[in-house]
Design a protein around this nucleic acid. Structure first.
Lengths: 126, 126
DNA sequence: ACTAGTGTACTATTTATCTATTACACTAAG
DNA sequence: CTTAGTGTAATAGATAAATAGTACACTAGT
């Protein structure tokens, strides 16, 4: 996996797992891959995985069972809040930065719409 | 100034100065505030300011003149590229994350438009 | 019991970031 | 020439993030 060098890896892993849950690759009640397996998959140290999972456990998103593994919570309230704050966070980051560039709300939406357009046709991956 | 704890301060200062240039608070040829002054204003160490400025100088956005100060370049080509990459970078971050959430392009634009709407009425700052 | 697969804990080491402090070099004004 | 204002360099120390490696604890299947 590719990481942004300017943000902590453990944090990026938290986001990644959250996304996997939102998408449905990890369903409520499902077991998260073993820490040692995740470490290999994400080419990262076990301790870094552990730190990310610890945060997710603290947030109630994952539920640990010693000797068995970590499992996605079945608490829909927790999952709903997580999804909400994930998306809101993404939007807020862009909104704040564009606001700092003194773009009007209309300019923001149209500019972003235009960008999405450019990504449509030109999705070349080499 | 407020900094995000999860990204290097020097990098956030680079972005901040870029935005000041884009907005027009710092015009081409204008002198950037003195490093010691910036350190006080941004409540940050001089070395951190220096590191940010060094990167901007390396990018050709700022031009240093020993004993006099740092000045915004008058090279419109450089400034144009900077502005372009700043905005593109913002858009790309949101686009990639929403794509990871498997949103369609239409959903992205409408969802962001809706978010901007919510920011319209509710801009309470207390 | 044994074993393989889980999570968990701990220490040590490296690297990047940030701070603090001091010193030096150049420019312009008096 | 002196001084105040600039940038610049260099050292030392503190903290956070990530790695490496080892060890321990619990669970389930044999």
């Amino acid at each position: 996996m590719e990481f942004d060098a300017k943000t902590p890896i453990y944090y990026q892993i938290e986001q990644y797992i959250n996304r996997e849950i939102i998408i449905g690759h990890l369903r409520p009640g499902a077991q998260v891959p073993a820490v040692r397996q995740l470490a290999i998959t994400l080419t990262v140290n076990v301790n870094t995985i552990q730190r990310a999972l610890a945060n997710l456990i603290g947030a109630g998103i994952l539920v640990p069972e010693r000797g068995k593994g970590n499992f996605v919570t079945t608490d829909q309230k927790v999952l709903g809040k997580m999804k909400q704050s994930m998306i809101e966070g993404e939007f807020k980051a862009l909104y704040d930065h564009l606001a700092a560039l003194e773009l009007s709300p209309e300019e923001m939406t149209t500019a972003f719409a235009q960008y999405v357009q450019t990504q449509q046709g030109g999705e070349r991956h080499e």
